[in-house]
Nucleic acid binder design. Structure first.
Lengths: 361, 361
DNA sequence: TTGAAAGCGGTACCAC
DNA sequence: GTGGTACCGCTTTCAA
């Protein structure tokens, strides 16, 4: 279609002048500028990003590397990033690393970023050594979200602290039999968060002289459906915890669902706590530890822009965002009961509401 | 970093030979080829997409234009598209049109696609005439998802049929007082789906001699939270419908939540039906009309690839995917009741489960 | 089979 | 203030 040459011809000037006039840099006489602008508009001229990028060496794109993209947390982070970048004329290059199973992922390669993006934002996946060297060779600014990596600025919450808050709430409510939902992937290089949260959970328990037996640990894939499936099996057992702490709200939803299907009252028979404050957490009255996911995305976008504009802060910043305990209706003190006399009843319809009663009843 | 010239030097051949060897086209002697490959690997050479694209005129990118990106439906479609495109070495350029309010959006511009993508997939937004001419001027293949546009292949469900199924279920269950959740944006050029679904709902009702008064129509923004807010006001009224049909599962979630907070039994006091089969619909036992969203994304990606490879089918295909009624626990026949004697009770805790009882009790 | 060279569409330096 | 022109890195004739 229209090239800069066409505009030059139409405006009766040289391509150099068109380039200057269009970008508003350098001095161009107002009259010439107007003629050029008119011609450009007339011809629907838009500069070819390929050509611009070839000569300038920059792309105005930022690679966003995400382990899953079709999950609330990641989509929300990306959305935050995108809004900030767009304000400054940058766009997002989506690099989805989703593999075939929960604990595999695609590698970060040079060709997904090289000359395609001016910087990279990595969501939650700790790069392998080989991936690190790719990133270093690329020589572009990197910002991480969700965990801290040496040498790169980061935006995140303190996963251990968040989980400690959730676990402590369970203990403070009087629970002593506490289950956990949230697998740690086989490879820690896949995701750090599952590891940190689980470790923190175990730590807080043991600090309080408690422990969570393996059969109360739901090894699910961080989806609601996966958690529901495992929780269903848990609730089939004669004895199960009075509270389940889930490493994410989505898993917590699955646990709540399984409880209801078993005719169990939440929180009467079992309390459920999540982490995230998922967009549906309030709707489903889930007690959780809130993090502002989109804000983290926006901050990561901003840090990237700063780095791109050479406004690198002298020291590498590690921005740890606050979390906030949101106590809602899914938690309460344990109901005094033995495994025999608990109020379980047959669910009359799949998923029908269970019992009536306030948490304290 | 490394350019084709560096590789040529290292391999002791010309850049032309490097180019040929690396892409496996044309004849290159095996020995030369090996030397080039070795040098390229050694130097971590990756061709600059900008340069390649400048000369070839193609980018191996496909623009995906979406009204919102951080919503389950759209993220899932994009995920499906991305998986297919990636297989053939194409990548996704995300163009998020999200505006500041539910019924505004950013325009589709030439500069977001021009020389950046080889084709465009448009999700659910009917282009304005001016946007159509941009797309036509660009001369790239276009595929639409979610609705049909003249001249372009499309992948979608029949929104009217889907809503008719949902509405008919309500009627078949015996409901006569039926409410609706799902605003139609002020501008029909924003989204077509809300319009189609609402119209179909109204149509089926009137075919059955029924109607939905304005005060039972929840004008919410297609989010769970928005629907919950409006449903809360509805349930505050002395008289409200025995069934609410929501134009999306997310809104249905909001309605269910509001019902529970009002101490209402679902489906005893009020039935709820959605459309989509959202990833959490089964978990929350929501009756809905299922569509396979990711499959639609994959098909759209495939159609795009076909067009890109010149395998254009002679006639423009309009692929209408099947939907499937999923009857779950959120629906049942209306309980015989007047507005005075219904089983409403004070919610003991926000969101506490309501009553016990099978749908038929 | 391989190399030289002419672009692809811009930008930026250097004259005028 | 404006025009000429040498690249940016790669692909693709055209010759050798």
């Amino acid at each position: 279609m229209t090239t800069i040459g066409d505009v030059a011809k139409a405006a009766g000037v040289s391509v150099a002048t068109v380039s200057r006039a269009l970008r508003g840099v350098d001095r161009v006489s107002p009259r010439t500028r107007d003629r050029v602008l008119a011609a450009a508009t007339e011809l629907h001229y838009v500069a070819s990003p390929a050509a611009t990028s070839l000569v300038s060496g920059r792309t105005r794109g930022v690679g966003v590397i995400t382990p899953y993209f079709n999950r609330w947390f990641f989509a929300t982070v990306v959305s935050g990033i995108e809004k900030i970048l767009r304000e400054e004329g940058y766009h997002v290059l989506l690099c989805d690393l989703e593999g075939h199973t929960f604990d595999t992922r695609l590698p970060i390669t040079q060709s997904m970023l090289w000359k395609r993006a001016d910087g990279a934002i990595i969501l939650n996946v700790p790069p392998l050594p080989s991936e690190r060297s790719v990133l270093e060779r690329l020589g572009m600014p990197v910002v991480t979200v969700g965990n801290q990596q040496p040498g790169w600025p980061s935006v995140r919450i303190d996963d251990r602290a968040a989980m400690a808050i959730a676990t402590q709430l369970a203990i403070d409510l009087g629970h002593r039999e506490i289950g956990y939902a949230g697998t740690v992937p086989a490879s820690i290089t896949h995701l750090q968060t599952p590891f940190d949260r689980r470790e923190s959970f175990t730590q807080v328990l043991s600090d309080n002289g408690l422990e969570c037996p393996p059969e109360w640990t739901l090894e699910c894939d961080w989806t609601a459906a996966g958690a529901a499936e495992h929780a269903n099996r848990l609730f089939d057992r004669p004895h199960f915890p009075t509270c389940i702490v889930a490493a994410s709200d989505e898993m917590a939803f699955g646990v709540m669902s399984a409880a209801r299907r078993h005719g169990l009252d939440v929180p009467g028979d079992v309390s459920v706590i999540g982490i995230d404050d998922h967009v549906h957490a309030e709707i489903f009255d889930l007690t959780t530890v809130r993090q502002d996911v989109e804000a983290q995305g926006r901050r990561a976008g901003r840090l990237m822009l700063d780095a791109l504009h050479g406004r690198d802060s002298a020291n590498i910043i590690d921005e740890v965002h606050d979390v906030q305990l949101m106590v809602r209706g899914s938690t309460g003190p344990p109901r005094r009961r033995s495994s025999r006399t608990r109020s379980r009843r047959a669910a009359t319809a799949v998923g029908a509401p269970a019992t009536v009663g306030s948490p304290a009843s």
